[in-house]
Nucleic acid binder design. Structure first.
Lengths: 185, 185
DNA sequence: CATTTGCGCTACCTTAAGTTTCGAAACCTC
DNA sequence: GAGGTTTCGAAACTTAAGGTAGCGCAAATG
């Protein structure tokens, strides 16, 4: 019979520094901005060799995406009215984008994806799809409409952050909710 | 008495290749994407030396912004109802973003601005402000609301382009208009 | 102890932005 | 036409960053 827990592969196991690298990534991006947060600097901040990072993530973009997945966690899709689900999702992502480092990393990796189809695929499948599917299930809306919803919400929040360097204030998030609810609620 | 036409400065006058460079910029961005459209390649496509470009624009970002200003031209603010002005502006910018090279250059320069405050300033003052002011005057709306409008419209359109590589289809532009009009009309 | 794999380190390759230098060309004034 | 001033094109250069390769050592399994 095959064991339920797969046998540990031979050789030295990886040290558990992923969380340290994620924290170093966010703090470095927060302090220096996305472009100046080089892999070398992130590695130094994490107390780790650059090669260790490239053994775990193939590119800087993949590292950032995993870091964001770790920072976001699961979507809080509390059962409730459609309006409650939508406004909850908007306020949740707006709050995350306001956390130090998270918004900059989010906007930065989107930036790189503009001219990098490989990164665009990672972004779509690893980051966007899980949240899109969760929203589809919770709302019972077709894929197209949920994608449009995501474009509006994330696009607006990131455009504000990118143009001003400051996350959107609460009053404008309220306005965003008020604008979106009649269409999707 | 001082002459109405200021005396031409001494030395060899600049050749009139700005338009050629703009066209080469858009076609190169369209063919290769933003990141691979290097200044050297743009110069080669324009039949011009790289140093000539750097004599006229201090950075790649400044070149792109001027190229976009040339491509956009003035906002078509036809007098009419608020709703007509708003939907006209949305469809106009959506159309421009759909032109080959323009959308990619727009998204790309926004990308760079995320971690480049200097470029952000150029972008805000040279590109965004004229259109924002024109809209403020035409709509009689305060600055904050017009900025929010721009964040929603441009953010949504660029997020779609950045995530998919394809400009937003007309049906979704219609949905964007329908969503925005009740709030701003 | 033998094997296998991860880590840190260093050196390296490649690409791209932006700079410098220099000889030649174009324009103006005298 | 001569001299002065600025631009152009070409090439070499600097710097920064992403990403790779090789090495010796450490940590696990058997």
């Amino acid at each position: 019979m095959t064991s339920a827990t797969p046998a540990r592969p031979p050789g030295r196991p990886r040290s558990g520094v992923n969380d340290v690298v994620f924290a170093a990534t966010l703090s470095t991006v927060h302090e220096l901005g996305y472009a100046r947060a080089t892999v070398e600097r992130i590695a130094a901040a994490a107390g780790v060799a650059k090669t260790t990072i490239y053994r775990r993530w193939p590119t800087k973009g993949a590292l950032i995406v995993d870091c964001l997945l770790d920072a976001f966690g699961p979507v809080p899709v509390d059962g409730g009215s459609k309006a409650a689900i939508l406004s909850g999702a908007i306020r949740w992502i707006a709050g995350k984008i306001g956390e130090p480092g998270v918004g900059d990393a989010f906007a930065g990796v989107f930036s790189d994806a503009v001219s990098d189809p490989g990164l665009r695929l990672i972004l779509a499948t690893r980051l966007q799809d899980p949240y899109r599917i969760a929203l589809q299930d919770a709302l019972g809306e077709p894929e197209q409409r949920v994608l449009f919803f995501i474009d509006v919400v994330v696009g607006t929040l990131l455009h504000r952050l990118g143009m001003t360097g400051v996350p959107m204030v609460e009053a404008d998030v309220d306005a965003l909710v008020d604008m979106v609810l009649p269409v999707f609620g």
